[in-house]
């Protein structure tokens, strides 16, 4: 059981570090004022999504790091869950933006998008929160599973 907890701690700590790094990158890029992209990863550069969003991602990372030590304990588990919720907010809004953008046909285009236009909206690059989303789901699943087995 202790070994299992250690493994979970390491995984959540790594996730926390990566999340903090993404948050800082978001804030720094927004401070410079120009969005930047690395093939499939795009760090937004505007003040709202990049700056404010960067703070949210940064705090998600800090929640992960502060709660990773003994995730079996309810206070730590809630911190980790809180971190995941923050990631969901960011990734959720990004995905929602993608969905709403993919349906209409553009400014001068038809009412509905073409199939290639529709699928093209979901093409890379993606914001850091999208990459963090599956891991945040796994972490919450792990916490819930642990709570049920108690």
């Amino acid at each position: 059981m202790a070994e299992k907890n250690n493994f979970a701690m390491i995984c959540i700590a790594i996730l926390g570090l990566v999340t903090v790094a993404f948050g800082l990158a978001d804030i720094l890029v927004s401070a410079v004022g120009d969005g930047t992209g690395l093939s499939i990863l795009e760090i937004p550069g505007d003040m709202f999504r990049g700056g404010w969003g960067g703070f949210i991602v940064l705090f998600a990372g800090l929640f992960y790091l502060s709660g990773c030590k003994n995730v079996a304990e309810v206070h730590n588990a809630s911190k980790v869950a809180m971190g995941s919720v923050l990631i969901w907010i960011m990734a959720g809004t990004d995905i929602f933006a993608m969905i709403t953008e993919s349906i209409p046909g553009g400014e001068d285009g038809p009412w509905f998008n073409s199939l290639s236009g529709f699928l093209g909206t979901y093409a890379p690059p993606y914001a850091p929160a999208i990459f963090l989303l599956p891991f945040s789901l796994v972490v919450v699943y792990y916490i819930l599973k642990q709570e049920r087995t108690k």
Partner: peptide, 17 residues
């Protein structure tokens, strides 16, 4: 040019997920 295949992969992951 739209990256249709990249978009299709992500959309599929999104739907299946």
């Amino acid at each position: 040019e739209n990256d249709v295949s990249g978009g299709a992969i992500f959309f599929s992951i999104l739907v299946i997920g």
